Amino acid sequence: SPQLSSEIENLMSQGYSYQDIQKALVIAQNNIEMAKNILREFVSIS
């Protein structure tokens, strides 16, 4: 969805990798808010 694409772009601009974002979305069943929480908790931005 376009909204999801812009959310993904936004997260990538914050330093998350596309791969990590995709993984979080799978775990969160495409719930972007939950995916963000997963990324915040489990992915360290280098």
Rank of each mutant, 00 (worst) to 15 (best):
N31G: 02
R40S: 13
E7Q: 07
E41G: 10
L11F: 03
Q19D: 12
L11V: 00
S13R: 09
Q29M: 06
Q19G: 12
Q19P: 08
Q19R: 13
L39D: 06
L4E: 05
G15T: 01
Y16M: 00
I21Q: 05
S1D: 08
L25H: 05
D20G: 04
F42C: 05
Q29D: 15
E7P: 06
R40Y: 06
L39P: 02
Y16A: 04
S44E: 14
E41V: 02
E9L: 08
A35D: 07
E7W: 03
R40I: 06
Y16H: 12
V43C: 08
N31Y: 02
R40W: 02
F42Y: 06
K23R: 14
I8Y: 02
S46Q: 14
S5W: 03
D20F: 05
P2H: 14
L11M: 08
S44R: 09
P2T: 13
S13F: 12
G15Y: 00
S44I: 09
S5Q: 08
K23Y: 06
L11Q: 00
Q22P: 04
A28T: 11
K23H: 09
I21W: 00
I32K: 05
I38F: 15
E9V: 07
I45G: 15
E9I: 10
L4I: 09
Q19N: 06
Q29H: 13
E7F: 08
I32S: 10
S13T: 08
Q22Y: 14
Q22E: 03
I45F: 08
Q29F: 01
E9G: 12
S13A: 14
I45Q: 12
E41W: 04
A24M: 03
P2A: 08
Y18T: 05
S17R: 04
L11E: 00
E7C: 12
R40K: 11
Q19H: 03
S1W: 02
K23S: 12
E33T: 08
L4M: 07
N37G: 10
I32V: 06
S17L: 08
E41K: 14
I45T: 14
E33W: 04
D20E: 13
N37F: 03
L25K: 01
Y18M: 12
Q22W: 00
I21K: 03
Y16T: 03
N37Q: 08
Y18K: 11
Q3C: 12
I32P: 10
S5D: 11
E7D: 12
V43S: 14
Q3F: 10
K23Q: 11
I27D: 15
A24Q: 03
Q19E: 11
I8N: 06
N31L: 00
G15C: 00
M12C: 13
F42S: 13
Q3K: 09
M12F: 06
A28W: 01
L25E: 01
S46Y: 00
K23V: 06
N30H: 11
Q22K: 15
A35E: 05
K36N: 03
G15S: 04
S13D: 09
I45R: 14
N31A: 00
V43T: 15
S13L: 11
V26D: 14
V43R: 14
L4D: 08
Q29Y: 04
A35I: 01
S44H: 10
S5V: 09
S6M: 10
E7R: 02
A35F: 03
Q3Y: 08
N30V: 00
S44F: 08
S46M: 01
V26N: 10
S17D: 10
S46D: 14
P2V: 07
S17C: 02
I27V: 09
N37I: 08
G15L: 01
D20N: 08
E41F: 01
E33H: 07
L39E: 05
I8E: 05
P2R: 09
K36Q: 05
A24S: 09
S6L: 14
S46V: 08
K23M: 14
P2D: 06
I45A: 15
L39H: 03
E33M: 07
K36S: 09
V26L: 11
V43M: 15
Q22R: 00
I38T: 13
Q3T: 09
Q22N: 03
P2G: 14
E7K: 08
S6W: 04
N31R: 10
P2W: 06
E41L: 00
N31E: 11
I38N: 14
S13H: 10
Q3H: 07
A35L: 03
K23N: 14
R40P: 15
S13Y: 05
A24P: 01
I21L: 01
S6T: 11
I38R: 14
K23A: 10
K36F: 02
N37R: 09
S1A: 07
I38H: 15
A28D: 12
L25I: 10
D20I: 04
S13M: 06
N10H: 08
D20C: 09
V43W: 14
S6P: 07
Y18A: 08
L25Q: 03
S17G: 08
Q19I: 08
A35K: 02
R40G: 12
L11P: 04
V43N: 15
N37T: 12
Q14K: 10
Q19A: 10
P2I: 07
V26C: 13
S1Q: 09
V26H: 06
S17A: 08
A28K: 07
L11S: 03
S5A: 09
L25G: 02
S5N: 14
N10I: 04
L11A: 00
V26F: 04
Y18S: 06
K36D: 05
A35N: 00
I38L: 14
N30G: 07
S13I: 09
M12W: 05
N31V: 00
K36L: 01
A28M: 01
P2K: 07
I8M: 05
S17Q: 14
Y16F: 10
I38Y: 15
S1E: 15
N30S: 07
V43D: 15
N37L: 05
Q29I: 00
L25N: 02
I21T: 02
R40A: 10
N30R: 02
S1N: 12
L39C: 05
N31D: 09
E33G: 13
K23L: 11
K36T: 07
N30A: 03
Q29A: 06
Q3W: 05
S44T: 12
I32W: 03
I8V: 10
G15R: 03
K36V: 05
D20P: 04
R40T: 12
Q19W: 10
L25T: 01
E9P: 02
I38M: 10
I32E: 07
V43P: 15
N10L: 13
E41Y: 02
E7I: 04
K36H: 03
Y18Q: 10
Q3N: 14
